[in-house]
Simulated assay, not measured.
Amino acid sequence: MAEKAEADLEFAEELERLMKDTTQGQDISQFLVQVYGGEVKNIVNIGNTGDVTIQ
Rank of each mutant, 00 (worst) to 15 (best):
V33E: 07
M19D: 09
M19W: 10
L9R: 10
N45M: 11
M1P: 00
L15P: 04
D51E: 14
D51S: 10
Y36P: 00
T53P: 01
Q30G: 15
E3I: 01
T22R: 15
N48K: 03
E10N: 11
I54L: 13
V33G: 03
K4L: 13
N45H: 09
K4W: 02
F11V: 13
T23G: 03
E10M: 06
R17C: 05
K41S: 06
G25I: 01
M19F: 15
G47V: 08
V40H: 02
D8A: 00
A2E: 12
I46L: 05
Y36V: 00
G25Q: 08
T53D: 01
N45C: 13
G47T: 04
G37D: 00
M19T: 15
Y36W: 02
D21Q: 15
F11S: 04
M19V: 15
G47F: 01
Q34F: 04
L9T: 01
E39M: 02
V35H: 05
N48G: 00
A2M: 07
A5T: 03
T49E: 08
N45Q: 11
G50E: 10
V35R: 06
D27M: 11
I43Q: 00
V35P: 03
K4N: 09
N48A: 08
E6R: 13
D51F: 14
A12N: 07
Q55L: 12
I46W: 00
K4F: 06
L32H: 10
F11M: 11
E14C: 08
N42W: 07
Q55C: 05
D21C: 10
T23A: 12
D21T: 06
E10W: 00
V40N: 02
Q24W: 09
A2N: 11
G50N: 13
D21N: 14
R17H: 09
I46C: 04
